[in-house]
């Protein structure tokens, strides 16, 4: 059982009444790995997390967490996981410390350890100075850190974070990412859902793109980007004439690919992105005597991946996924 993957899901389906939300989700989270579940609103991200964290029973399919079946061995699963959802699971009327002590006791930490563990978490999450204040007075970032800390009192082996940075300002998001990296570095396996491509890029070893209740792509961020296209040197030329001259020197046809569709003043030169190759391309442009208006090296973003895979752009980040 110790060699089991952190999460193994096969053909998970879920229906709310007559509406299918999950349509056969297959997922594997290896031990010590960070997997980002990326998808638009209603793709089934939250539903997947709720099933894996035993909060919801799947309509069909099977899932095991740390080797335990999420339906038949839910209690065993609960002993090794922690889930931090979209709505904060902390009590506003209690202080930060009281919240953590409550969670530590419910996690059945030995009594003698509770205090030390709570102090340790308050320090690590930069909440020590606010420990005696009611959570109602905390900022959004502090509250999210406390929420995460509350989920970590029992040292979970598998951590689920459902849209951890939704609603946080950039500074608070960076702080949260630092904490999450720290937790992962200690060996915790992490499955997070996000609508922020940057978040997946920053934190995840692997990305699974969820769309319409299915995983439509699964791979490292780099591999997914490679599926969409390689890096390119983009040249913006003053006239169609210039573009034709440079194009023939490089063996390329000017055309769409840069700027507006049908543009004839732009060139897209595929590159492996190495310094040598980019220099070679630029030297050959230089040799034609044409001076481009501008140029840049572009590499595909996860946004491109997302658009290519799902056919629609990413959602506005402030919208909440609502699976209810």
């Amino acid at each position: 059982m110790n060699d089991s993957p952190a999460v193994e899901a096969e053909g998970l389906t879920h229906r709310y009444g007559s509406v299918g939300v999950l349509d056969g989700v297959d997922l594997t989270l290896h031990r010590g790995e960070v997997l980002a579940l990326l998808g638009p609103n209603g793709a089934g991200k939250t539903t997947t997390v709720r099933i894996l964290s035993t909060l919801l029973e799947p309509t069909g399919g099977r899932a095991r967490v740390a080797g335990f079946d999420v339906v038949r061995e839910a209690r065993r699963v609960r002993e090794v996981i922690s889930v931090t959802g979209q709505s904060a699971a902390v009590d506003d009327k209690l202080t930060g410390r009281e919240n953590l002590v409550t969670m530590a006791r419910l996690a059945h930490l030995p009594r003698a350890e509770v205090r030390a563990r709570v102090d340790e978490l308050l320090d690590a999450f930069d909440l020590a100075s606010a420990a005696g204040r009611r959570v109602g007075t905390y900022s959004g970032g502090m509250r999210r850190r406390l929420d995460l800390a509350a989920g970590l009192v029992a040292r979970p082996r598998v951590l689920f974070l459902d849209e951890p940075s939704t609603g946080l300002d950039p500074r608070a998001r960076q702080d949260l990412w630092d904490v999450v990296r720290d937790v992962v570095a200690q060996g915790t396996s992490l499955l997070l859902t996000t609508q922020y491509l940057e978040e997946a890029d920053q934190l995840a070893d692997r990305v699974a793109v969820l769309d319409g209740g299915r995983v439509v792509a699964d791979g490292t961020p780099a591999a997914l980007k490679a599926r969409v296209g390689e890096a390119a040197v983009e040249l913006d030329l003053a006239t169609a004439d210039d573009a034709a001259r440079v194009g023939s020197a490089l063996g390329l046809v000017p055309g769409p690919g840069v700027g507006e569709p049908g543009a004839t003043t732009a060139l897209r030169v595929p590159t492996d992105g190495t310094l040598a190759h980019v220099r070679d391309v630029l030297d050959r442009v230089d040799a034609t005597g044409v001076v481009p208006r501008g140029w840049s090296v572009v590499s595909p973003t996860l946004d491109d991946v997302y658009l290519a895979l799902t056919g629609h752009p990413t959602e506005h980040p402030t919208e909440q996924e609502d699976a209810a």
């Binding site: 909060l55 209690r75 609960r78 002993e79 889930v83 959802g85 979209q86 904060a88 699971a89 419910l106």
Partner: peptide, 12 residues
């Protein structure tokens, strides 16, 4: 709120 989900995801 979210707290019941946390309790339910714990061995409580």
């Amino acid at each position: 709120g979210g707290i019941v989900d946390r309790f339910r995801s714990m061995p409580v």
